[in-house]
Amino acid sequence: MQRYPMTPQGHATLEAELKQLKSVDRPRITAAIAEAREHGDLKENAEYHAAREQQGFCEARIRDIEAKLGGAQIIDPATLPREGRVVFGVTVVIENMDTEEEKRYKIVGDDEADFKAGKISVNSPIARGLIGKVEGDEVRIQTPSGTVEYEVMEVVYE
């Protein structure tokens, strides 16, 4: 069984999405299908086909979330030993050694990742390159734009 690392917040977010899909979206889609059926000929009924397509997406997402929650490995950074090492769930401040630009990333599970919000997947090239490093370490990371050298400035356990 595949394990899906996630923070407690990420787990709660997935549970809330699952509840929304099952208790709100699924009944709404079922009602839309029933209403579209009442309009007659299903072969040329665009509302019916659109509702069925929505139903397929909804059911697929429900199955996906249930699988991820079933295989969830919840890692709470607050319970980890605070040894200054970059691990899952911490926030790390890195500095690009060429441009001296600082970036702040929280390392989270795949479903929690949101690059614009500063949350990167533990499976991303940057996170994989940073895991295990400590403050002051320099690391070379292969990114889509080429190899970039970073220095780990700070590791924050929240």
Rank of each mutant, 00 (worst) to 15 (best):
Met1Gly: 04
Met1Asp: 05
Met1Gln: 03
Gln2Val: 08
Arg3Gln: 12
Pro5Ile: 05
Pro5Ala: 12
Pro5Lys: 07
Pro5Trp: 01
Thr7Tyr: 04
Pro8Met: 08
Gln9His: 08
Gln9Leu: 11
Ala12Ile: 07
Thr13Ser: 06
Glu15Gln: 15
Ala16Thr: 10
Leu18Ala: 07
Lys19Ser: 12
Lys19Pro: 03
Gln20Trp: 09
Leu21Asn: 05
Lys22Trp: 11
Ser23Arg: 14
Val24Gly: 00
Arg26Thr: 13
Arg26Val: 13
Pro27Asn: 06
Pro27Ile: 11
Arg28Pro: 02
Ile29Trp: 02
Ala31Glu: 05
Ala31Pro: 00
Ala32Lys: 09
Ala32Val: 04
Ala32Glu: 12
Ala32Asn: 10
Ala32Tyr: 07
Arg37Met: 10
Arg37Asp: 08
Gly40Asn: 03
Leu42Asp: 10
Leu42Ser: 13
Leu42Phe: 06
Lys43Glu: 15
Lys43Arg: 12
Glu44Trp: 05
Asn45Asp: 11
Asn45Phe: 12
Glu47Cys: 01
Tyr48Cys: 06
His49Phe: 14
His49Ile: 08
His49Pro: 02
His49Gly: 06
Ala51Ser: 07
Ala51His: 07
Arg52Ala: 12
Gln54Gly: 04
Gln55Phe: 15
Gln55Arg: 15
Cys58Val: 14
Ala60Gln: 14
Ile62Asp: 02
Ile62Met: 08
Arg63Gln: 15
Arg63His: 14
Asp64Ser: 10
Ile65Pro: 00
Ala67Leu: 14
Lys68Phe: 05
Lys68Asp: 06
Gly70His: 06
Gly70Ala: 09
Ala72Pro: 00
Ala72Asp: 04
Asp76His: 07
Gly84Gln: 03
Thr91Asp: 06
Val92Asp: 00
Val93Phe: 05
Asn96Trp: 11
Asn96Arg: 12
Met97Lys: 14
Asp98Leu: 07
Asp98Asn: 09
Asp98Met: 08
Thr99His: 05
Glu101Ser: 03
Lys103Ser: 15
Lys106Gln: 14
Lys106Trp: 01
Ile107Pro: 00
Val108Ile: 13
Val108Met: 11
Gly109Thr: 13
Gly109Gln: 13
Gly109Asp: 13
Asp111Thr: 13
Asp111Pro: 06
Glu112Asp: 11
Ala113Ile: 12
Asp114Tyr: 04
Phe115Leu: 12
Lys116Asn: 09
Ala117Asn: 14
Ala117Met: 09
Ala117Val: 04
Gly118Ala: 15
Lys119Asn: 08
Ile120Asp: 00
Ile120Thr: 07
Ile120Tyr: 01
Ser121Val: 08
Ser124Arg: 14
Pro125Ile: 00
Ile126Val: 15
Arg128Thr: 03
Arg128Asn: 05
Arg128Pro: 02
Arg128Tyr: 01
Gly129Ser: 07
Gly129Asn: 05
Gly129Phe: 00
Gly129Gln: 02
Leu130Tyr: 00
Leu130Pro: 00
Ile131Tyr: 01
Ile131Cys: 00
Ile131Asn: 01
Gly132Tyr: 05
Val134Gly: 15
Glu135Cys: 06
Gly136Gln: 10
Asp137Asn: 12
Val139Thr: 07
Val139Arg: 01
Arg140Val: 04
Ile141Gly: 00
Gln142Thr: 11
Thr143Lys: 11
Pro144His: 12
Ser145Asn: 07
Thr147Trp: 02
Thr147Arg: 02
Val148Asp: 01
Glu149Gln: 08
Tyr150Val: 04
Tyr150Gly: 00
Val152Leu: 07
Met153Trp: 05
Glu154Phe: 04
Glu154Trp: 03
Glu154Gln: 15
Val155Leu: 10
Val156Cys: 02
